[in-house]
Design a protein around this nucleic acid. Structure first.
Lengths: 146, 146
DNA sequence: GAAATAAGCTTGATTAGTCAAGTATCTATC
DNA sequence: GATAGATACTTGACTAATCAAGCTTATTTC
């Protein structure tokens, strides 16, 4: 209607598009692999990290959740054995999270379908458009895995 | 770590970046104007629509919520008078939502700070990068307001 | 024009997260 | 080396959304 600055259009559309897309991804991950997108992201970040292990607070920051959000979501993941709780020798405050072999298997399977899903969703978007968007994302957030 | 297809990087980073950004926007809208991002989006879409009025189901689709999500969030908005409930003469099933004058005022104020916030968040991102990203968003979702 | 199906909306129960407050540990300062 | 402050995490209370089921009204089909 009224002329919106591109920056604001970006924010608004980021939100709407994410809301639409993450719902679809979530549904597909949940049905096939029994995990939600957030759980996927936790496994993904753990798997990409040094020693397959992260502090809860770093996990929180890289995913965009709060510390308490991590506590709540990781606890059932420990129970079903996809991640394990480790101690930090140097600092007794921190509780480390490590992806287990079982977790790696689930992550691998889920990644396959996620790859297919994303390709299908973005079919028709050019390589250069994607590169461009990834640059913006990298600029905004620090923890971007390309 | 391992070579991810750009499409999948896009999905993953869309999610993380949105989670980070929407939290900040939400906090600022909430503190200053007493509404959340979702409420803002509802007012925004209503204001841009024909007769400032929409069906709940269309509101749901354009924002990326479910019909019940709309019911729950719109109901308190009716109580405080930023939107009103209207009937559709032709179809008694539908319940229309209309932005009120009070709602327009809040929307106007909130839009001002949202504009500032988005510019600050995206300071340094080039015009062409933004245009590019908006094209992708437009491609994915149908209800993109540029 | 009756019956079957679909569309729009609401409600009860549940889930995924938040925030604020509390505990435990670590670090810095004097 | 005691004290003050900061950091990591958890917990209780709450919020925003979901889904499945149900209600009402429209539309299609025969």
């Amino acid at each position: 209607m009224n002329e919106l600055p591109k920056e604001m259009s970006f924010i608004i559309n980021l939100w709407s598009v994410n809301s639409i897309i993450s719902k679809r991804i979530d549904a597909s991950l949940g049905t096939i692999h029994g995990i939600g997108f957030t759980e996927y992201m936790i496994l993904f970040h753990l798997n990409n990290s040094h020693n397959k292990t992260m502090r809860r607070i770093d996990l929180a920051n890289s995913i965009g959740l709060t510390a308490s959000g991590i506590t709540r979501i990781v606890s059932p993941m420990e129970k079903i054995g996809v991640v394990s709780k480790e101690q930090n020798k140097r600092d007794a405050r921190v509780s480390l999270v490590k992806i287990t072999t079982a977790g790696e298997v689930i992550l691998g399977d889920a990644t396959l379908s996620l790859k297919q899903n994303s390709k299908r969703l973005l079919e028709g978007v050019s390589e250069s458009h994607l590169t461009n968007a990834l640059e913006i994302f990298k600029f905004i957030g620090k923890d971007v895995y390309v």
